[in-house]
Amino acid sequence: MSAGPVIRVRDLDYAYGRQPALQGVSFDVHALDFVSVIGPNGGGKSTLLKLLLGLLSPRRGTVEVCGGPPSKSRLKLGYMPQRVELDPRFPVTVMDVTIMGRLGLRPTLGPYRRRDREAALAALEATDAADLRDRPFSELSGGQRQKVLIARALCGDPEVLLLDEPTASLDPTVQDDLYALLNRLNATRTILMVSHDVSMVSRFVNRVLCVNRTCVEHCVTEIPRELSLLFDAREDLRLVRHDHDHSGHPPAGGACRD
């Protein structure tokens, strides 16, 4: 793994036509960070993700992923799209979906090899979904589908996992389960996750980026023991200082890396 940041964004501007979506965004993501990108709907979270993936090109500024432009480094990224974008009636099994993560690591012609099958199975095992492998994808519950899509992102052996709202519209217990899984995967992989719920996220992530046209980093700090008792909380409760206004001006305080 390279010594520099895994993701490096500098002075990034992007606009849809004349409508600015992102302005002056700069941040680094380091190896084994667990970053949550939060912000209001339409604030530019998905645009940022698409720029990191190289599906969009910046108007100004630079995006580097794993030391190169996104278009060159794509295969080092494991991407999980929002579930709603997939056709629920498409005839595919869990294995069919997972093994798509092996595309790009095999010749274009001919069927997947045994190696691809083994990697897909290993990824399903890593996300506790191996027993689902022959089930139709359409029959799975919401949480099971998310696990399979994470496995698909995982089976290309990526350095970074990019997840778009992995816990959207899931039961709280299922969300807990999924975050525990992501926390486990974070031991060996950098994770950048778009999310809308700050409360859950803060238990595992070490950094929070708030994107609303501009991008502001929030401090994630341990809450003093006495304070956490007040909340009757689990001991892994942490504090996200959401202390900037959303007018688009960064706060005077500046960055908070420790």
Partner: peptide, 14 residues
């Protein structure tokens, strides 16, 4: 299959 099911993902996989 990949292009029919999830074109964006397939493109990202090269």
């Amino acid at each position: 299959l990949a292009v029919c099911y999830d074109e964006e993902f397939a493109r990202l996989r090269g």
